[in-house]
Nucleic acid binder design. Structure first.
Lengths: 377, 377
DNA sequence: GTGAAAGCGCTAACAG
DNA sequence: CTGTTAGCGCTTTCAC
């Protein structure tokens, strides 16, 4: 449990360290000499141009340019503590959910001259801790985009560096979240408007904050609209989890399903279809996230999605504000609005309610002969 | 075109810099004082434990541990130039192709105490250049995983830092590649064994090295097996590109198609199905990469895939060797073997050859009503 | 507005 | 094996 600060020893570098600045990358000293000014002036020319005579600055830049000088971020970081790096911790880069989030974050960071360090936890708490551990000394702040860490672990982290949590509400830790209530309302309204009276929720990981939020909101809004809900699960937030949900589903029977996320929805649809069910004929399915794949499935998935890119950039903006000295309480929590993408996996329930289980399995039409479950992968 | 070394000025940090080491993160000096040794001994205890008396080292570590001391990688980097960071440049993180590659690379790096900086080019040469520019001073080496940079730009880069190219063969730049010849042979053999006599290649971006390799290998092996080939394109390496290829396809007519990658194959299949074609009944389709989505389409896609994870870790291993001082010529180029995943998008050609164009479009079966092209996204 | 000088935290000769 | 002493490249008082 004690952090081990040491790093593995490494073979000596190929060449002995250059002691003379001959032929190596130019420093402010080289520029200073060539421009006939003091090194401190060169330093100012780059870090605080306003504190230098405009002409001098221009000359320095010119000299620097043709010497090929570039500020060394590491050297700058040492005295100032400003590394110009932030970390973005995700539970699993592989999850398409993060793409736009990552991009939004990276773009916002780059705009302000910051580099983003991606820490992939690979869904493992241990790997996450270790990765963060390694990265902390180097970064000025951390965006926690879906983490498996406990609230208290996050609070500890927040003591070491400014932290913004994404889609997670922890007291004392500033966050940006999507409007989960709204997203669920959109899903429920859509299904209710189609005429569904019962909805089954395919539950995601219990540890996932969003999962609790979704289930709670579902109960709330379904109640308001007089819809009966039940929940099965929990399932892994993957296509495999969805397939397992499909296996459990017949016991439940409802005309509509809301899945924890798109991956679960997709796995669920595939397996159910392989059982002979028609979607949306027998069951309507709604996912969350609008991942890339959800527009490529058959049928295409109806899904509710947060503005991922905005979420990422907001997180970074707030983080940089924190780093800049804003007090955590100043950074107002945001609940970003979501949008529903209605596609082909939802429709009005069949008028004659009976389980697809009782119907003869339809002949596999030519266009879907690939729908059987994979033997590989 | 001239690099601009300056970075945007930033608001002053919230607190004035700590001049006294009071209450701040402990340094080797704090540890040294507490342990009653010189700071250099503390330094050695962490960076070269073998050069310190075992007992002394133990005592130092103990003291360090309860002071909460951690080595500061930045401070270490300054005198040594060893930042313990490498960059991984990808054309587009969003492309599922990179997932396992990224993981393989990150795992290999982490194992050796290195942190991976992900530079996402978002398919833009400008963004790529800028991102790399920003990151270069901080990293010890760079893995170029699919880049849109020109050969000469890459050679320039290789002068500044050790570089390993992935799936790109540039003289003087060490690389790891998949065995493109083998991968294409696997695809051709599979289709030939099924009885196909003509294959159409859906070409990817002309700038992509892999594209040229694939087409050349295709001609070679198809020739050997007496199969007629043609090529259409180029198309963007996306589902959209594949859809465009489908629109062009009727002019070509062949019983089998090999696409530049899975995304193209998927877009192609979807569009063709929407036209009323049956897959694999009318056309067999083979992709490359085995991306996640390809096991979730209908029909599931037959595809040829490189060992992505291995590719990533190999790249990093070689890069670290280079950084460690290995000469580029020593790092032997690798061509990693591929594997074909046979799924449902390929079958024997219809015995009666006629274009699906001539057949009446099949009624859309319930299970595939989602197969029409998306109006959204 | 500019220069001189003292560090930031750590490593690396060089002595002892 | 351990202590002394210079730096790494940059920023930042503090004078001028």
């Amino acid at each position: 449990m004690t952090p081990s600060p040491e790093q593995p020893a490494r073979p000596a570098a190929a060449e002995p360290r250059r002691r003379s600045s001959a032929r190596s990358t130019p420093t402010i000293y080289d520029v200073a000499r060539a421009a006939g000014v003091a090194s401190s002036t060169v330093s100012r020319a780059f870090s605080r141009p306003d504190r230098v005579n405009a002409e001098t600055a221009a000359r320095i830049r010119a000299v620097a340019a043709d010497l090929g000088y570039r500020t060394n971020p590491l050297a700058r970081a040492l005295p100032t503590g400003q590394t110009s790096m932030i970390a973005l911790a995700t539970a699993d880069i592989t999850n398409p959910y993060y793409f736009e989030l990552i991009r939004g974050a990276q773009a916002a960071a780059a705009e302000r001259g910051y580099t983003t360090l991606l820490a992939d936890a690979q869904e493992s708490v241990a790997i996450e801790r270790e990765g963060l551990e390694r990265v902390i000394p180097t970064v000025e702040g951390i965006v926690l985009a879906s983490t498996r860490m406990s609230d208290s672990a996050i609070r500890m982290l927040a003591k070491q560096r400014p932290v913004i949590a994404v889609n997670r509400d922890i007291s004392d830790v500033p966050n940006v979240v999507t409007d989960h209530a709204m997203s669920m309302r959109q899903a429920v309204d859509h299904l209710a408007d189609l005429g569904h009276r019962q909805i089954t929720y395919l539950s995601g990981p219990e540890a996932a904050w969003a999962n609790g939020m979704r289930w709670r909101s579902l109960r709330l809004y379904a109640g308001e609209r007089g819809i009966h809900v039940r929940r099965i699960g929990p399932y892994a937030p993957t296509a495999g989890g969805g397939a397992r949900a499909a296996a459990d589903f017949p016991a439940v029977r409802s005309s509509a399903v809301i899945a924890y996320n798109d991956l679960v929805a997709i796995g669920f649809m595939r397996r159910l279809i392989s059982f002979g069910a028609r979607i949306p004929g027998d069951v309507s399915v709604v996912g969350f996230d609008n991942i890339f794949t959800s527009a490529l499935t058959s049928p295409e998935l109806t899904t509710v999605a947060p503005p991922l890119r905005t979420l990422g950039s907001m997180a970074v903006h707030n983080l940089l504000a924190l780093i800049g000295g804003a007090s955590p309480t100043t950074v107002r929590p945001l609940a970003l609005p979501t949008r529903i993408y209605v596609r082909a996996s939802t429709a009005a329930p069949a008028t004659r309610r009976r389980s697809w289980r009782d119907a003869p399995a339809p002949r596999e039409p030519a266009t879907t002969r690939g729908n059987r479950l994979p033997s590989s992968g």
